[in-house]
Computed example of a mutant assay.
Amino acid sequence: MKRYGLLLLMFWVCLPVQAHPHSWISMKTKIVGSDGYITKLSMAWQMDPMTSAYALDGEDVSPAKIKKTLDALAYEAVSNMYQQHYLTQMLVGNKSIDFVKTSKGHYRLDGAKLTLMFDLTLQHPIPLSSSDIRLQVYEPTYYVDMEWQKASDVSLSEQLAKQCKTTLVQPHPTAKQISYAASIPIDVTGDPDLGNLFAQTIKLDCH
């Protein structure tokens, strides 16, 4: 197995372009909570076909072995993302909330696309009475574009839906920042703060 590169989002895929990003993730996120607190995030991240093919290259995907293969790949992907805060920032004001360390997750193969599914439990549940609750998910170097394609890709658990609403805020990088990202060669990782400039934000308003 590819021990390096099983961090889901760090594949060096040889695409025929000379610009960031080089890989694309379509996300769905469910924000979970009860008893007046936000407690967990349930993630489903679908990779583009080329990145999915690279992830499975050389792996045993025969009918008899594919479940074992996907389980092993998911374990390593989620485990490795711990060092990057799972590429996820759950924020209250300027404070980022930590997640309980996990390696649990699973891959689903839908045609040519892999989807990684996993849960992140907050170490300290967020009271719904908190102000300025936000969620961002991004890869810091913008090697990978991570996107909720529509507002409904972010949902709330039943209890949270009674008290909260979400707003999807799109990023507004400048023309200069867009040009800079486009100028980074394919074999250069790039600026570790670049991803934040292109990151969407989910705002939660609760009462």
Rank of each mutant, 00 (worst) to 15 (best):
M27R: 11
L91V: 04
M47Y: 06
S52D: 12
N80W: 04
Q177N: 00
M10D: 15
A161F: 00
K104V: 03
T102S: 08
V13A: 14
M1H: 09
L116V: 12
Q170M: 11
H20W: 08
W148Q: 03
L6Y: 05
K176F: 05
Y142K: 10
D48K: 10
S130F: 09
L8M: 13
Q163W: 02
D35P: 01
C206W: 06
L7V: 08
I25E: 10
K65V: 03
M43S: 10
D35V: 04
V154N: 01
A44Y: 05
D187G: 06
P127H: 04
N80T: 08
Y75F: 11
P140D: 11
H85K: 15
A112P: 05
P192T: 07
D60G: 02
L197F: 12
E158V: 11
V169R: 01
T201M: 14
A182S: 13
K65W: 00
K68C: 00
M90G: 01
S42R: 12
G190D: 09
S42G: 01
K150F: 00
K165L: 00
V61W: 01
A19S: 14
R3I: 05
E139V: 10
W12I: 09
D57N: 14
L41E: 09
I31C: 07
S26Y: 11
M43V: 11
Q200R: 12
K150A: 07
W12M: 09
V144S: 14
D71L: 05
D132Y: 06
C164Y: 06
L160S: 03
Q149S: 11
Q177L: 11
S157P: 06
L15T: 15
M50Y: 10
G58K: 07
K40R: 15
W12Y: 08
Y75H: 07
Y4W: 13
T88P: 09
A77W: 01
E76F: 06
I202T: 10
Q46S: 14
D60M: 02
A53N: 11
D205G: 04
S179H: 07
M10E: 14
H124F: 09
T121W: 05
S52T: 15
I25S: 08
N196Q: 15
N196W: 13
A77Q: 02
L56K: 12
G33D: 02
K101Y: 07
L9T: 08
L160K: 04
W45D: 12
V17N: 04
G93A: 03
E59Q: 12
A72K: 00
S157Y: 02
L87A: 08
D98A: 15
P16E: 08
C164M: 06
D132W: 02
A55C: 13
A74I: 01
L122V: 13
A182I: 01
